[in-house]
């Protein structure tokens, strides 16, 4: 078998299967390792983002102030929910926090949702077209989550500067959380700066790592469950036992994963709003 032969190169068996699945479709745009682009993550993220934007655009275009269609009602419920969250949490003045929150929620949810698809379907289909590696869950790629977190943080800096002005925004780095006067102001400035730097570093890191970790672990468990009947033969009794076990385990984990993908999208959105409100607040 062609497939079997190829696996021999990477090690074969369970390890080979999992390793194979955890390898990105990579394109090197330079000789450095840092210049490797995970094409699968980029494409899936772009396609999902496009789907999200186009579908919401058409729903919004056809929106009526009369009795809404079911699709419109669903989107209205979602938008109302996000808007309520933002109104409860964010007390600054900004027009783009709610749309930002909606976008992060929808994109993270849709990207996470790719995890619901059977873990081998898309990679195996891609193999028919000669694509060797394919990872469909963009949020299980740390590059994606870090990228999103950094994007969010640039926007949050913008919110902070817009609410406080450039001078007081950067002055705050030296004067908060420890407020002081006179000599103490100067003595405490480095400590404040250090704390602030840690804070600025930890926030995007926690935001991105939490999402990445959950999705990566989820995907790994799907792979492990798939391993139950790896290399199984139909004429063996254990195949049927393991097959049943795989079905039950897969069913439970997939059902449970519905909660995880929604929760992770929700957490990402909520933290975005919370950080935005913290950035807008004066100390």
């Amino acid at each position: 078998m062609r497939f079997a032969m190829r696996v021999e190169e990477t090690g074969g068996g369970m390890t080979g299967y999992i390793k194979h699945h955890l390898t990105h479709l990579t394109v090197n745009i330079g000789h450095d390792k840092l210049l490797a682009v995970h094409l699968d993550s980029v494409i899936f993220k772009a396609v999902i983002a496009l789907l999200f934007v186009v579908s919401f655009f058409f729903i919004a275009r056809r929106a009526t102030s009369g009795v809404p269609s079911k699709t419109q009602a669903a989107v209205e419920l979602l938008v109302g929910f996000v808007d309520g969250m933002v109104k409860d949490t964010f007390h600054g003045k900004s027009d783009f926090i709610a749309p930002l929150a909606l976008t992060t929620f929808c994109l993270v949810f849709l990207e996470n949702f790719m995890d619901m698809l059977p873990v081998d379907f898309l990679p195996e289909s891609a193999k028919i077209f000669g694509v060797e590696h394919l990872r469909v869950v963009a949020t299980a790629d740390i590059n994606t989550t870090v990228g999103m977190a950094l994007g969010v943080f640039l926007l949050l800096w913008y919110v902070g500067i817009k609410h406080k002005g450039v001078v007081s925004f950067f002055k705050e780095w030296f004067t908060a959380p420890f407020h002081a006067h006179g000599l103490w102001l100067i003595l405490l400035a480095p400590i404040n700066l250090l704390l602030r730097l840690i804070e600025e570093l930890v926030r995007p890191l926690s935001l991105s790592l939490r999402l990445f970790g959950n999705m990566y672990a989820g995907e790994l468990i799907f792979l492990l469950i798939a391993c139950f009947t790896l290399d199984a033969a139909l004429n063996h009794v254990s195949t049927y036992v393991m097959g049943g076990a795989q079905f039950i385990a897969g069913f439970i984990w997939t059902a449970f994963h519905i909660l995880i993908i929604t929760l992770q999208a929700f957490i990402f959105m909520t933290l975005t709003i919370v950080y935005a409100s913290m950035a807008a607040e004066r100390h």
Binding site: A226, A232, A233
Partner: peptide
Amino acid sequence: MDIAITLVIQGLVFFGVAWLV
């Protein structure tokens, strides 16, 4: 490495969860 059965069961799981939803 043969993943035919794994694939089938993954499909069953997918439809099972779809039914659950």
